[in-house]
Design a protein around this nucleic acid. Structure first.
Lengths: 155, 155
DNA sequence: TTATCTTTGACTAATATTGACTTTCATTAT
DNA sequence: ATAATGAAAGTCAATATTAGTCAAAGATAA
């Protein structure tokens, strides 16, 4: 029933490969052909679903023998990951990116499911309910950063 | 069995599906077509009949392959206690009163220490960082109410 | 009558898809 | 070496495809 759009399907395909392997290396046009989409759609999928907030590193090369390589990274190997995340968030973050950040923290066992849900609810667009978009995104950033700082202090 | 307006019929239709399934996932325009109403009527039905107070969670996505998903959730025993708190909070709450609310939830074992801390951080004056006091208090109210509503059911 | 609930549709917002154009890189030709 | 060529990937804006909001108009109930 779900995943009726091709971007989701391509996302799942790539993630299914990453479930068994350290990284995935593709030729953009091949994947585009495989799913019958235009090549730039692969960029769209990567840009919206394989961000650093999601815990993925992407590198690529153009020209003959070019490729796109996606790697799943463990954000929390480093002691100062929280700092890194705080930097990435900056003073503004969209709901989508916030979801990715919280999801990553959950996957890396920094937060349990309940805590992750609480944070998502607290920073949800509808919860905050402000019409000014910039304000909404900056509030969300402050809340998440506040919590990250608290987690660091705690541990 | 009185007044069978279309909203009631759509409500029954969706609930009949939910009687056999964990959730329903619809395409708004399809349901609208099926019952010969404008699409926004589906929003009206959902907003008036599938609220969290009634034990329904709604999530949706726009764009290609978009959907509306309605899930029936299990309301917990604490639900009415939380309802009362929600009523009391209304649309504005000071940091001091918020502290009292969270404290009592902690004492009643609705929240553990860590969760309570998270909520206090998220609603702290300095975290929110808005000059306008009324805005600050109403944001705090929305965040806490959002969380209380979330605590009313189990995922 | 008056208040509340329902229906409608114009407008808005979010997300996805597409394609024209650009940039980068390796290889081949001069 | 250097230039020309072709084979990749990248960018961006236009368009398409959904769902959301809101307020006015209409219907129903108190």
């Amino acid at each position: 029933m779900q995943s009726q759009n091709i971007s989701d399907i391509i996302e799942k395909y790539l993630k299914s490969i990453l479930a068994d392997a350290e990284h995935v290396e593709i030729r953009r046009s091949e994947i585009a052909d495989l799913f019958n989409v235009v090549p730039s759609q692969i960029n769209y999928v990567i840009k919206t679903r394989f961000t650093i907030q999601n815990g993925y590193l992407v590198e690529s090369k153009r020209g003959g023998g070019g490729y796109i390589r996606i790697e799943k990274v463990n954000l929390l190997d480093d002691a100062d990951v929280l700092d890194t995340l705080i930097q990435v968030i900056g003073d503004s973050i969209t709901q989508r990116d916030a979801y990715a950040v919280v999801q990553s923290l959950y996957e890396d066992d920094v937060l349990n499911r309940r805590e992750a849900q609480l944070i998502l609810v607290a920073t949800d667009r509808n919860t905050l309910g402000v019409d000014d978009h910039d304000l909404e995104n900056s509030l969300r950033a402050r809340i998440i950063i506040g919590i990250l700082n608290h987690l660091r202090y705690e541990s």
